[in-house]
Nucleic acid binder design. Structure first.
Lengths: 213, 213
DNA sequence: CGAGTAATTATGCAAGTGTATAATTTCTCC
DNA sequence: GGAGAAATTATACACTTGCATAATTACTCG
């Protein structure tokens, strides 16, 4: 009954890194960045802690990698549905729908966002990633609104477009936040419905009817 | 040159507790809940760490006290401006203004909210405080919208009122979030302007003109 | 002004933290 | 199937953490 050394299987660097990143995101969502300890992450990834040092030169580096992984995933999830062509109105609607449906609306996604916020404000690299992602979101939304307004024959000047984009982005962010914070407070589809109506009311567009005369 | 024992002044329990709570909020905003160490808090409050134990039986208890202090302060700040009587429309406008102006819109307030979120989701007591505060906000907003609509001669059924309140709350929350996250991205008064316009567009009310025919 | 008491400081401890480094195992390739 | 190299494990260390407890100080009240 000697204490045997642990058996293990060699994995590719990519697979191991991803596994470590996923384990990190789980623990950051549950316990925050400081609560995601190296030992905890290693255990969650079914690996000993020394291995983390082998792939990431510090915990800081792992955290940053996990943050960028998460942000990329959120971006993909939001824009994937609307990538398919169609009228600008349809694409705008798809953007709203994608932003207000799981897995984008999700307690875990909100928890991750909140957990990372502190580091995002302080660490320059993470701050840069954050600002770039945010700008990408809003610019894309602004372009969608501009196209939809033009399509409807109601083009708007740049200054107004900026305000509309900020406002629509805010409703979506706010609904996303509330949906993640109080998952049981809203019926299925309710957030999407309210999101569509609000964006429609703010922009003056009709997002519901599909037919084009 | 003997190491002298530190001089100190006795304070009332209330003053000390408040000082400790304020120091705690500072550190939580800067470093998160786990980053707000007992030693750090004591240093910020210009006190030795043992004193914390004297007033709070555990760090957990201090954190909860700090959270409730912060939530109460935010509530007061939001509703104080609109307490003065006036038309429902004016009170609704005051609510929007107060929610989208410093010190409610503030990087520190956002950082605190984010830092506490994890604990809010897990700790039952903090969860209860959070849900109560959120419900208070939204009910109050819904009542304001209902009154303003009726005042304007456009009463709405309960189901629609609920949706309007959720939507308006979301715009405000979203603008609050973005204003706190990117303080330099918005000109002074811009958030308030966009907030007013959005709430007006969603509800169909005119929040700008003051005169009543 | 002097004793008592509560506020405050000082010190210690066990557990957990990130990181560094040595020891071992698995896999590849000839 | 065996040697070499890289992946993985194991161990150790210095530091921080929350908490407990003893020692001292400042204020109150007679």
């Amino acid at each position: 009954m000697t204490d045997e050394r642990r058996k293990f299987k060699r994995e590719s660097a990519e697979a191991r890194k991803e596994a470590l990143i996923l384990a990190t995101l789980e623990l950051v969502a549950e316990n925050g960045v400081r609560g995601a300890t190296v030992r905890g992450i290693a255990e969650r990834a079914d690996v000993t802690q020394g291995l983390i040092r082998h792939y990431f030169s510090s915990k800081e580096e792992l955290i940053i990698a996990a943050y960028e992984h998460h942000m990329n995933q959120m971006t993909d999830l939001t824009f994937a549905p609307g990538a398919a062509a169609g009228s600008a109105r349809a694409r705008l609607r798809a953007f709203v729908d994608g932003s207000l449906t799981p897995p984008v609306v999700d307690p875990r996604a909100l928890a991750l966002w909140a957990s990372f916020l502190n580091k995002v404000q302080n660490d320059p690299q993470m701050k840069e990633t954050h600002q770039r992602t945010y700008a990408y979101f809003r610019d894309r939304l602004e372009a969608l609104i501009a196209a939809a307004l033009e399509e409807a024959g109601h083009p708007a000047p740049a200054a107004r477009l900026r305000q509309l984009a900020i406002a629509c982005n805010a409703v979506i962010d706010g609904l996303w936040l509330e949906g993640g914070a109080l998952p049981d407070a809203f019926a299925a589809g309710e957030l999407v419905e309210i999101g569509r109506q609000s964006v429609a009311a703010i922009t003056g567009l009709d997002l519901e009817q599909e037919a084009e005369t």
